[in-house]
């Protein structure tokens, strides 16, 4: 690694460490070691250098400084596969940061815009508004930035608006990410009450 590359990497890692830790969650840095590889790479995924040995379990939220990247879909001993937010199988519950309109972000594939479904016709949502996680999916903590609204259409005869959004994260350029681990696992919460 050249001195210049090391300096750039340090800058990125410092930025990542500056990311505020949500309450009851612990963050851990991870390096992206591969993007889609091989004939079985049907899903939009990346590989990171953290696995079960370091506590990176399935459904661990993955972020970068710009916002949500996805969640861990499959975890090995020392590496994990991250399902990216633009994969057609990905679903993230969100709300508008300003107007609090709730919806669910669907991935539509690489290079495609995200679709925001189930935004009620009476809700208020504006082009340019940032969508943040609502925490309703039980995977992501509340308030993480996910996408920016690019188009809003109200159509007759439907209950919901047609909303499109752009991810805030530049996925092909990802090199380091943050994993968010629960400080208290949901199954432990009951024990705390008892």
């Amino acid at each position: 690694m050249t001195l210049r590359e090391r300096a750039e990497a340090t800058g990125r890692v410092e930025k990542l460490l500056g990311f505020p830790e949500p309450p009851d969650w612990k963050r851990e840095g991870a390096r992206v070691i591969a993007h889609r590889v091989g004939p079985t790479a049907i899903l939009e995924t990346i590989l990171v250098d953290r696995g079960k040995l370091s506590g990176a379990l399935e459904d661990t939220p993955v972020l970068c400084t710009e916002g949500v990247v996805g969640r861990i879909y499959r975890s090995g001993f020392s590496v994990a596969t991250v399902l990216l937010l633009n994969d057609p199988s990905s679903r993230i519950a969100v709300v508008g940061r300003d107007n609090r309109a709730a919806g669910v972000i669907y991935g539509m594939g690489a290079g495609e815009q995200l679709m925001v479904k189930y935004v009620g016709l009476k809700s208020t949502i504006e082009v340019g508004e940032i969508l943040v996680t609502s925490g309703m999916d039980g995977v992501f903590p509340k308030g993480l930035p996910v996408a920016r609204v690019t188009a809003v259409r109200r159509e007759e005869g439907t209950l919901f608006m047609d909303v499109q959004a752009d991810p805030l994260v530049d996925i092909p350029r990802l090199e380091e990410v943050l994993l968010l681990k629960r400080a208290v696992r949901p199954e432990d919460a009951r024990a705390l009450w008892d």
Partner: peptide
Amino acid sequence: AIQEGAGGLAFGYAILW
């Protein structure tokens, strides 16, 4: 082993392939 480890699908594709 390489194809199954790197891919995103459940185990089995590479064996069949």
